[in-house]
Amino acid sequence: MSMIDIRNISKWYGQFQVLTDCSTQVKQGEVVVVCGPSGSGKSTLIKCVNGLEPFQKGDVVVNGISVADAKTDLPKLRARVGMVFQHFELFPHMSIIGNLTIAQTKVLGRGADEARERGIKLLDRVGLKAHASKFPGELSGGQQQRVAIARALAMDPICMLFDEPTSALDPEMINEVLDVMVELAKEGMTMMVVTHEMGFARKVAHRVIFMDAGQIVEDATKEAFFGQPRSERAQQFLSKILQH
C-alpha cells in the first residue's frame, strides 16, 4: 500500500490552471524528490498532500485517508504529516523548545514533561540541544531549519514533506540541513522532497519526479532519471542545474 497516493489532481487559481491531472504514489519508506522550474507547481502539489491547498479535481489518499473527503478531520491528518518549509516558519515568539512542544501538548495532548523530553531528545539529534531556551531569531538559518525538522519529528509523523528546505540558506549551511535529511531517509522515513539539490537526490532518493507547467512530466527511478531522462524539458532542466 502506498503511504501517499496522489490521484489525478487538478487545481485552478481562477482561470489559471496550476496543476493538471497529477498522479503519483509514494510507498512506505520511499524517498521521492520533486524538481522542476520555478512556478511549475511543485509547492502547490506538495501542499495538496496535506490539504493546505484545496484542489478542485482528483484526490490524495494519505495512509488510507482521503484528503478531499469533506468528512476527513484534516487537522488530525496534518498532525501526522510533517512539513518543512523554505523559510523555516518557526514561531518567533516561542523559545526553541517551545516551538517543539506546543503542538505536542495542544494537538496531541501530551503532558508537558513528556513533550519536553521528546523535544530535547530531538534537539540533541539535530545537534542543537544547547540552544533549547534560545529564540528562533537568535539562530542561523541552517540551525533554524534543523529545529524546524525536529519540530516536525516531534509529532511522530508517518511521512514528511519538504518544500525547498535549503533554498533560502547560505551555501555554507546547506549541508548541515541535508545531513539531517539524509539520516532521516536512511532510517526509512517516507519523504517527499521538493529540492534542486541533485546530490541529495542521487544519494538517497528512490524516485525523481520532474514537473513543468503544472504537469508531472517525468516520474522515474533515480537511476533512470539521471541516466537518461526521457523528456526534452527534463534534459534541459538537468543540464542547467548540473552545470553549477
Binding site: K47, N50, L52, P75, R78, M83, F85, V107, L108, A152
Partner: peptide, 11 residues
C-alpha cells in the same frame, strides 16, 4: 507561511 506552518502541524 506562519499560518501554513501552524495548520500543517495539526492546529
Amino acid at each position: 507561511g506562519q499560518k501554513m506552518a501552524s495548520l500543517a502541524m495539526g492546529f
